[in-house]
């Protein structure tokens, strides 16, 4: 038995779902075509590569790597084209870079940061990364998180460090096809609990799980 070197924190929970498994970035990923009419879609995006860094010089260092840095705390901006990945500023001086399926920036940054300069501290990211989308997304969030998501101004590209059903999460609110599209990251050791709880609630409004149509 050769266990893949990367497994999603919720790998075991997805085993019973129908769909095709394929390796993406070395991680087995269940791929399902998304239903077009589901009120709520949960997607495991843990397979994406990501890199974290913090410290007083982290922003300068990232800039020296050719990146455009979100200038305000708790905001994000896209990585340079043609990538659709993101760079998020978490608070004042911490950053999360997540690649898209087609980019490989995070591993490069990790490599470059192996011997970090002063006041630059790499942060190993092993998150459960999921996406919530569809018209019922806000209903799910309203049942699980004490923040007013409807009041967010998406044009400001906000990032929210908050707590969802007792788990610390990072949220990136967005929109897709006129419906809310939220990316969420949390400590993978809370992954099973978070995923199972969200799925249970989502199922009540007819939500579905797809994994993964990025």
């Amino acid at each position: 038995m050769n266990t893949p070197l990367r497994l999603s924190p919720i790998h075991d929970l997805l085993q019973s779902l129908p769909g095709n498994w394929q390796a993406i970035n070395g991680m087995p990923v269940l791929t399902v075509s998304p239903p077009t009419t589901s009120p709520l879609i949960l997607t495991d995006r843990s397979c994406l590569t990501r890199f974290g860094v913090k410290g007083a010089n982290a922003a300068d260092w990232l800039a020296s790597q050719g990146l455009t840095i979100p200038d305000r705390p708790n905001s994000w901006c896209p990585l340079p084209n043609p990538s659709a990945g993101i760079i998020a500023r978490l608070g004042l001086s911490e950053f999360l870079i997540e690649d898209s399926l087609s980019s490989r920036l995070a591993p490069q940054l990790a490599m470059a940061c192996q011997t970090p300069p002063a006041k630059v501290y790499p942060v190993l990211r092993q998150d459960l990364a999921i996406a919530l989308s569809g018209p019922a997304t806000h209903e799910l969030l309203q049942q699980t998180c004490n923040l007013n998501f409807r009041a967010l101004i998406l044009a400001d590209r906000p990032i929210l460090l908050t707590s969802l059903i007792g788990v610390v999460v990072t949220l990136l609110p967005g929109e897709h096809n006129g419906h809310p599209f939220y990316r969420l990251w949390c400590d993978g050791t809370f992954g099973n609990y978070l995923w199972q709880t969200l799925v249970a609630i989502a199922t009540e409004f007819g939500g579905t799980i797809t994994n993964v149509e990025l």
Partner: peptide
Amino acid sequence: PINGLRPVGE
């Protein structure tokens, strides 16, 4: 000061 007004539970 960084994250704005948040519920005390956070």
